[in-house]
Structures are given as structure tokens and as C-alpha cells.
Design a protein around this nucleic acid. Structure first.
Lengths: 227, 227
DNA sequence: AACTAGTGTTAACGTGTGTTAACCGATTGA
DNA sequence: TCAATCGGTTAACACACGTTAACACTAGTT
């Protein structure tokens, strides 16, 4: 089995970052997501990615500065910048040389994937999505469908699906509250936390057909899904 | 009766553009003329031409930039660049790969027509079998026909076909609302958004023969077509 | 010119999703 | 034990989206 291509994605809008990450993962890339430039720089050093996708507007360290720092120690790695429409093309085009490219927001995943493949000079690999199992349930994340045994699947909302996805991925382990809040809500504040509690309630209801399944709260830390 | 081959011609010198257009029309091509790169990009999206003839020097958006933008979403369409003598051959030759060609001004119509035919013959073989698959449906974008299994194809409208095209191209990934709105409607305002919703409904109805197919909404972001 | 069919937009109303608020019990630590 | 805090639950709410139908526009037809 060929090794996956490693991408480093730096995007501060958590929800958008998550969607891009997912999309790239379904195309069989290995994706590390960072929500600011400083973290991205650390991850760049530790993970040794094959390509970088950097949002230009980011807290702590913006995409251009980050790229400059990385270029100082690695002048080969391909970089794709994500830019808001407010940024003028000519500023960006200055960077579109020597292994760099850029994409204006909004863009489609298809566009991003085409550019990644162009820069890597590799051919596409498609991956079929596998469904996750939890107790007597089956969860198809891409379709956002939760099925009990052989019954008709229930359609979950985007938020429900994401939350459940992370819970299943960390099955029988404590999943950190703030981690989820940052990943799905983009912020770890009071209101997001309450909103998350509501979704935990919703998931508990939708998972109650299998009595073995529990979403256990660990006060002050997070939740643990067990089956 | 065979359909005419559609060309998109982008040339800012009006008189020259008109002469080229007329010459090509006498050869039974269907020609759309634009006098700048931005208009050409819009026309590319709305007309779905079979081949592009782009002047390199143009206001608003030059031929190379335009080609780059189009290549990001369509890596198959043949492109012929028209270049002034001042442009050096090596700059141009970088683009003479993978479905591209170029012509130095001044050129004869005969030269242009030969090159058009060369490029179309090269891509024709691949293009005929290029219908898209979604579940048990087959979608022929150029013909705007959607067929379920071996039944008679349904004719889609222009808008329906474009929207479906982008959904299929981004199958199993979230397709950004505002991207579609900007691409198909040209603006991301309230009314266009509602209009788009109507077309989503229409597509859902036309795709409901295969129950596995879903157009899932991701609140605030866009849609995900799954099969 | 009036008629027709086809396409896309606007309008109106209904539904679904996610956030906020309110009230509650449970857990914790002084 | 008592207050402080955290989480559970339900409901109200705002707004994004769904659906249908009426409307406007165009092009071809009579």
C-alpha cells in the first residue's frame, strides 16, 4: 500500500477548515489542520508534509509570513494560498511563482484538488468511504446517516454528524470538550459550550435504541462514548 | 444533424475580432466574441464552448491568467493563444502543452483553422465517452441529458445542468453556496440564493429514482451530493 | 399581433437547523 | 451545608433552506 500524501492545512475559520480537511481526506490525503500560523510552523517541522495549504488571513502569523519563514529553510515545498476576495490579485500573484499557487475564496474542492495534483504531479486516487460502527448502529459519516441494525437510516444534521464522528473516532476514550468546541464551533466560549450540550442530548436520544451505548460526561474534561 | 462546434474567441481589437469571428463562422463554427478576459470567463461558464481562442494581451484579464483560471476547473478544454510578435516564443511554449497551442500574429485564417481542427480531433475521442455518473444515473453535460439506467434521457435546462455538473464534480464533498452563486448567477444576493434553492428542489426530484442519491444541505455552507 | 411552450425569477408560506434562554439536578469544594 | 459551578433538558427563537405556485420573459408558431 502506497503511503498517503501529507498535507498541512492552516485555516483559522474552524468550520471551513474542517470541511476542507474532510474533503481532502476523502481523496485519500493525510491532513493536519492548524488554526493559526504559529501552530502551522510547529506542525510543519514535526510532520514534514508534502504540500502546504495556507489561508492568508490568520491570527498569530499570516500565511505570507509563514510561507516566508518556511521558504527560508525549504525552498522546494509547494504552497497553495487561500485568499479572500478582498485581497487583490496582484499582491497574490507575486507569490504565484516557484512552486506556489493561490486560490480565491470561495473555491470548490475540485479546484483545490486539481491544483494540489498539479503541484505534486501525481494522479488521482479515489477512496470509498467506510462506515463506522458503534454498538448495534452503523454510521455513515459522508452521508450523515445513522442506522440501527437493518432499519432505515436516520438523517443526521451536519453538526450532529461531526460530533458523533469525533465521539466514535475516540470511542472508549475521553474526548476533550474544548477540542470539539474549537474544531466544530471555532471557539470555546460559554454559548458554544451550551450549544454543544444540546447536541449531546440529541445524540443520546438518537442512540438510545442500543442500551449499551452511553455518552458519559467527565466533569470538566469532556465526553466518553462507550458501547 | 450534427451540432455546431462552439468556439469562444477573446480578442480586444474589435476589428480583428470581428474578422476572425466571421471567417470562422463561414467554416460553420459557432463563435462567441469577447473583448476582454473577464467577459470571456463569464461566457466560458454560460456557453460551454468546445475550444477557446484567447488573445494574450487583453484588458481586465489577460489570456494566460484567464487560461489558468479556466484550467483550474476544466483541464481538458483545448486552448489556442494568439500572441503578438513582441512576446518571446519560450514564454509561450511553456503553455503549449496538454491541449494548448499558440499562434503568432499576424497569422492566416487557414493556420488558425488547421490548428482548431487538430486540437478538436485530438480531444474528440476522449470527449464522446465523457458522461458523468451519479448513482444509477448518467449525466451528459454537453447534451444536458440525465438518464436513469437504460431509460430514455430527460432533458435538463441550462441552469439545472450547470448546477448538477458542479455537484457531480464535487461529489461527496461540500460545494460552497456562494461559489455556485457567483459562477452560475454571477452574484451572491438574496434572490439568486432563493432561485438556487428552487433548482436544488428540481434536481432532487429528478434524481429521486435512485434512493441512494442525496443532496444534503450543510447549513450556512452549501450542498453535498452523495451516492 | 395573439398564442404557446419553455425557462428562469419572484413571492409566499412552510419546515428544519442551530443558538440562546431558562430552569433544573448533580457534583464539587470551602 | 451551602453556595458555586457544570452539565442535562426543554422550549423559544431567529434565520437558512424547502416547496409550490404565480409571474415575467423569450422565442418560436399561428
Amino acid at each position: 500500500m502506497a503511503e498517503k500524501i501529507k498535507l498541512l492545512l492552516a485555516e483559522d475559520e474552524a468550520a471551513l477548515g474542517q470541511i476542507i480537511k474532510e474533503s481532502l481526506e476523502t481523496r485519500d490525503f493525510e491532513v493536519t489542520l492548524c488554526d493559526n500560523g504559529e501552530k502551522a510552523f510547529e506542525k510543519y517541522q514535526s510532520d514534514q508534509p508534502d504540500l502546504l495549504v495556507l489561508d492568508v488571513m490568520m491570527p498569530k502569523k499570516d500565511g505570507f509570513t509563514l510561507a516566508k519563514d518556511i521558504r527560508a529553510i525549504d525552498d522546494a515545498i509547494p504552497i497553495i494560498f487561500l485568499t479572500a476576495k478582498s485581497q487583490t490579485a496582484d499582491v497574490v500573484e507575486g507569490f504565484s511563482i516557484g512552486g506556489n499557487d493561490y486560490l480565491k475564496k470561495p473555491f470548490s474542492m475540485e479546484e483545490l484538488i486539481v491544483r494540489i495534483h498539479n503541484l505534486l504531479n501525481r494522479t488521482k486516487v479515489q477512496k470509498t468511504s467506510e462506515s463506522l460502527a458503534i454498538g448495534a448502529y452503523t454510521f455513515d459519516f459522508p452521508k450523515q446517516q445513522l442506522a440501527f441494525k437493518n432499519e432505515k437510516p436516520t438523517q443526521l444534521t451536519h453538526r450532529e454528524a461531526h460530533l458523533l464522528f469525533h465521539l466514535i473516532k475516540n470511542k472508549n476514550q475521553v474526548l476533550d470538550r474544548s477540542l470539539i468546541l474549537n474544531k466544530l464551533w471555532g471557539t470555546d466560549d460559554f454559548f458554544s459550550a451550551r450549544s454543544m450540550d444540546v447536541f449531546i442530548t440529541k445524540l443520546r436520544k438518537k442512540l438510545q435504541k442500543d442500551e449499551k451505548i452511553q455518552i458519559i460526561n467527565v466533569r470538566g474534561f469532556g465526553y466518553k462514548l462507550t458501547d
